[in-house]
């Protein structure tokens, strides 16, 4: 069975000051995820990839279309759709274990059980020693690890990641990518991963969805069957990278051209 279906998502932004000015941000986006799929969404900046992810999460309302998780319409935010944000989103007033167990407690789990489960996921991201630290005592990479643990603790059907490693330095980023792949494999996660890094997308994904510049439309779905872990500079990897870059450059060229001609 399909784990998640993104069905005909269209998003029109209406300007608050001028109701007549409408911007088509996403144009009829559809794709499916099977259980254990790792799908990346790539596109030129402003193509609406973050908007798409926020719509899947239920944090933004689509103009039309549906999000279907496990066969049920799921347009509201909830614990079955975990999300990791690009910005640091840990609650600064809670320590690591309280952050990670927050979702569990919200669903009525007893504190003891929630702590036990949270601890498991904190260990999983390698931060067992930092359970009682506060977010402002952690480095950027550690904060994102906690954010991943926090999203995982709810054991969601699908994990949405919005450039989670975007703010990290290259070394930390590579390390976290590998850790994410390990967890993905062990936990059989279903992931939608938004990024602007082609390298990252090629390294991690089973499928790359390339979006066009505004309005965001699916230009191409590129399945990647190279077994993981992959090498970052292998021949097959490079071929895919070239193809994606060509598509993105073309999209960027079209976007620039339409801007020059006064839209």
């Amino acid at each position: 069975m399909k784990k998640a279906e993104i069905q005909n998502i269209t998003k029109i932004f209406v300007s608050k000051d001028d109701r007549k000015s409408e911007v088509l941000a996403l144009d009829n986006i559809s794709f499916d995820l099977a259980e254990g799929d790792f799908v990346s969404i790539l596109g030129p900046s402003g193509c609406g990839k973050t908007t798409l992810l926020r719509i899947i999460a239920g944090l933004e309302k689509q103009t039309s279309g549906n999000i279907i998780i496990n066969g049920k319409i799921s347009n509201e935010p909830g614990p079955k759709k975990g999300m990791v944000f690009q910005e640091y989103s840990l609650f600064p007033w809670k320590n690591v274990i309280d952050n990670v167990s927050f979702g569990l407690k919200m669903q009525g789990m007893k504190k003891e059980d929630a702590y036990k489960k949270a601890s498991k996921y904190i260990e999983m991201v390698g931060l067992g020693e930092f359970k009682y630290s506060y977010p402002n005592e952690l480095s950027g990479g550690m904060k994102q690890r906690v954010a991943i643990a926090r999203a995982l603790a709810n054991e969601p059907d699908i994990i949405l990641m919005d450039e989670p490693f975007g703010a990290l330095d290259a070394q930390t980023r590579n390390k976290l990518q590998n850790e994410l792949l390990n967890i993905w494999k062990n936990q059989k996660l279903t992931v939608v991963f938004v990024t602007h890094s082609v390298d990252e997308a090629v390294y991690l994904s089973d499928k790359i969805i390339v979006l066009s510049a505004r309005p965001g439309k699916i230009v191409k779905e590129i399945p990647i069957t190279i077994p993981k872990p992959r090498t970052r500079t292998g021949n097959e990897e490079n071929e895919i990278r070239d193809e994606v870059l060509r598509l993105l450059n073309h999209e960027k060229y079209l976007a620039d051209a339409s801007q020059l001609s006064g839209e």
Binding site: G58, P79, M83, Y88, F91, F102, Q107
Partner: peptide, 28 residues
């Protein structure tokens, strides 16, 4: 806004819970 959104995707979606668990500590 990010704290409220993070709470929502963790399953804390009711106004009362958001106020109690997110807004009050964040604004304290």
């Amino acid at each position: 806004k990010i704290y409220v959104e993070a709470a929502k995707v963790l399953g804390c979606t009711k106004d009362f819970d958001l106020i109690r668990h997110v807004a009050i500590p964040a604004a304290s």
